[in-house]
Simulated scan of single mutants.
Amino acid sequence: MTTPRDLMFVTMDVPSSPPVEQGDLSLALAGAELIDLIDAHAVALDGDRIVPRTQPALDDRLLDEASSSLTQQAPYETVEDWLWRRGRGLAAAYRAALEAEGQVTRRRHRWIPFSADRTAPVDSPARRHAADRWTSGELVLAALAAAVGIHDEPTADLAQLTDGPIPTVLAAVNEAVTELEAVRQRRRIEDAAFDNIWRGQ
């Protein structure tokens, strides 16, 4: 099991209001991939630069894809740049992978024939693993979930995450999500102003 997959299951199983934004989730998934690559000693951080090391067999297609896409030459890629590049469309990629593996299904509302499909996880060892990790209060998963707006029990004492490269990754995820929300806010303001101009004519 991997942290990105666990995060996907958490976002499907734990209610959040408002719903998790797919762009936020994609950024957090890229951060989760980087954390797993650090834990696997596939990369190290030099400040905020991602330095490739070995390329171990990771037994996960998307994580292998992430590892093989690393910038191999100095000055290497920053964590921030990685999140934006690798995160593009990543939530959809993980959802498609889980669906292809039979880990999730698409369910259409039975009373609304033209409603959008809803993705729902099936009962599986992978889902139970993610649930166990979530209910145990594992700090990294809790921090990533909080970054995308899931604030449910258990609440993690994120102040404990002070040593090593992981806090650097989590801080970058939070900053990227905040930046993306600022972009959304600007677009909403611009759209509202445009609508007001048309209504005033």
Rank of each mutant, 00 (worst) to 15 (best):
residue 186 R to Y: 06
residue 129 H to I: 04
residue 91 A to I: 06
residue 154 P to R: 00
residue 167 P to W: 04
residue 168 T to S: 09
residue 108 R to C: 01
residue 90 L to K: 02
residue 164 G to R: 04
residue 160 Q to F: 07
residue 104 V to K: 01
residue 102 G to Q: 08
residue 104 V to I: 13
residue 125 P to V: 04
residue 95 R to E: 15
residue 183 V to S: 00
residue 179 E to K: 10
residue 174 N to P: 05
residue 96 A to D: 15
residue 116 A to P: 04
residue 94 Y to P: 07
residue 104 V to C: 05
residue 98 L to T: 07
residue 135 T to P: 00
residue 118 R to Y: 00
residue 180 L to E: 11
residue 106 R to C: 09
residue 89 G to D: 08
residue 104 V to Y: 01
residue 94 Y to D: 06
residue 114 F to L: 07
residue 101 E to M: 13
residue 175 E to F: 01
residue 118 R to W: 00
residue 112 I to K: 14
residue 93 A to T: 14
residue 161 L to Y: 00
residue 130 A to K: 02
residue 112 I to E: 15
residue 180 L to I: 06
residue 97 A to Q: 13
residue 171 A to H: 09
residue 136 S to G: 12
residue 89 G to W: 07
residue 93 A to W: 07
residue 90 L to A: 02
residue 112 I to M: 13
residue 96 A to I: 11
residue 119 T to D: 04
residue 178 T to F: 07
residue 174 N to I: 14
residue 104 V to W: 01
residue 121 P to E: 02
residue 182 A to R: 06
residue 170 L to G: 00
residue 93 A to Q: 12
residue 158 L to M: 08
residue 115 S to F: 03
residue 166 I to N: 06
residue 109 H to D: 14
residue 126 A to S: 14
residue 151 H to T: 08
residue 128 R to Y: 13
residue 147 A to F: 00
residue 144 L to M: 04
residue 153 E to F: 14
residue 113 P to C: 05
residue 139 L to S: 09
